[in-house]
Each structure stands twice: as C-alpha cells, then as structure tokens.
C-alpha cells in the first residue's frame, strides 16, 4: 500500500438532495472527510440512514456535492465514468441483454469489436464461475448468480476503483459467504481499489483492509480501524473462532450501536 497521494480524496464533503415526493431538501452528508488509498479494500459500515450509499453515489458521480472536495487522482470528479465501476445492490443487469452481452457492455461502449469483447467477457464470466450461464437472460439466474454477473461486468471494464453498494444484501446467508470468498479471490487477482458499503459488521471485517464506521445522520467519520487479520485466515466459518475477529466485531458493533442509540 502506497503512502503517497490517495486514490480518492474526500474533504469536508456536503451533499443534499431534494426529496422527490415531498419536494423538501434533505441533508445526507456533512463534514465528510475520507481517503481511499490505491489498491486497498475499504469497507464503509454504518446504520441505515448514515449516508453510506449517498457517499458511494457521490463518488460514482450520480450525485453532485453541494460543497467540499471530491477528487480522484487529484482531479475533481465531475460525473460518472468508466474509471469507477459500480456494483449495485439490485444488480442493474439489463434484462434485454444476455449475461455475456451484459458483461461485455462496457467494452462495447469503448468500441471493442464484437468477437474480442465477447472473448473478454467470457473470461470474466469463467472467473466468476458463470461460464455456463453466458447465453442466458438475467431473469433466468438466481440472485447469487446475478450478483456474480454484475461483478464480472464491472471487472471486465477494468476500472481503477470498484464501488460496491451493499451488493450481497439481497442474497441468502450461505450464498453471501460464498460470494464474499469469491470476491476476495477475484480482487486478489485484479488488485484494483475497492470501496465497499455494507451494514454487516462481519462482512466488513471479512473483506476489508480498513473499515470506516459512519454515524447516523450527516457528520464526520465516526471511526477508522485496520483489519489486522492475515487474509489466509479469513475463511468462513473458521473466522468466527478467530480471537481478533471477535474483538473487532465487538468493537465495531459497539460503535455502530452507540451511534444508533445516540441519535
């Protein structure tokens, strides 16, 4: 991990948006300061309503901040771009494209030829364990398979930073653990920077190099912790028995709970 300039720099960020139904302005983020370092797996955890998804959407460029600094590679983020790939909670696979065409979509946008992009997409599908499902449509896949396809689509586009918005929230517990292990394996090969949002403390510790805890309501980061557990030890279900894991889980859970109760 480099100690140089952060990959993504967030300083005193303030984000608010107009609620579509009521027409009222709602403050979602305030005084948010955060660094995402090159090559790290950073997990943001916090109670619902803490603004973690808003933060992700702002970094992705879907929402424009009201004030503050938001930079990637020392350049301001002006909108969505293929340098930041997003994996959505509801997958956002296009229903009218087959799985392989979905995975090849970013390459198509770049103008890569049909044969070449299909070849690349199939490689990433194989990496995600979905080689068999290439010609199927998204609705024919299980939730877990859809999420694998969504991850493959993001990876195939080779973004510098991958933003993941509670991607495993909608799948069952067993699948979730499998997907977490696979994600770490695939990330290990690509070595890209990951910004991962979740409300599950266990997931945060399992995946992250660093865990950032947000407080409920707009405000600065509540706490930052390094996960000093060797990645070779991070295997389900053994990790549950790991003393350091239990310690971190208690500590982070307390932080999340306290913020919830305090508000």
């Amino acid at each position: 991990m480099s100690d140089g300039m952060p990959k993504i720099k967030v300083r005193d960020l303030k984000v608010s948006y107009v609620h579509a139904a009521t027409g009222q302005r709602h403050l979602a983020l305030d005084n948010m300061t955060l660094d995402i370092r090159e090559g790290e797996f950073l997990v943001v955890v916090g109670p619902s309503g803490c603004g973690k998804s808003t933060l992700l959407s702002t970094i992705a460029g879907f929402i424009s901040p009201q004030s503050g600094v938001l930079e990637m590679n020392e350049r301001p983020i002006a909108g969505p771009g293929s340098d930041r790939g997003v994996v959505f909670q509801d997958y956002a696979l296009l229903p009218w494209k087959t799985v392989v065409d979905n995975v090849a979509l970013g390459l198509k946008f770049k103008g890569v030829s049909k044969t070449e992009r299909t070849k690349t997409a199939k490689e990433f599908l194989a990496l995600a364990g979905l080689a068999e499902a290439a010609e199927k449509y998204p609705h024919e896949l299980s939730g877990g398979m859809r999420q694998r396809a969504a991850v493959a689509r993001t990876l195939a586009n080779a973004p510098e930073v991958i933003l993941m918005d509670e991607p495993f929230a909608a799948v069952d517990a067993q699948t979730r653990m499998t997907l977490q292990e696979e994600l770490v394996r695939i990330w290990g090969q690509s070595k890209s920077t990951v910004f991962f949002v979740t409300h599950s403390v266990e997931e945060a510790i399992f995946l992250g190099d660093r865990v950032v805890v947000l407080q409920e309501g707009p405000g600065p980061v509540k706490a930052e912790l390094s996960v000093d557990i060797d990645r070779s030890l991070r295997v389900w279900p053994d990790l549950n028995q790991n003393g350091r894991f239990q310690q971190l889980r208690e500590e982070i859970t307390a932080l999340v709970r306290k913020t919830t109760v305090a508000a």
Binding site: G85, L94, K97
Partner: peptide, 22 residues
C-alpha cells in the same frame, strides 16, 4: 429504473450509446 442508466454511465456509455443500448 435510474440504476440502468447509472450502470451504463459508470461503464462509460455516451448519451447516444445509452439511448440505443439502454
């Protein structure tokens, strides 16, 4: 669904590409 459009934007789609593909 706005996520379809957001997803395509994040994959680097231009306005025309998003219209025709999404």
């Amino acid at each position: 669904p706005p996520t379809y459009i957001n997803a395509a934007k994040s994959l680097g789609g231009s306005r025309l590409q998003i219209i025709t593909n999404v």
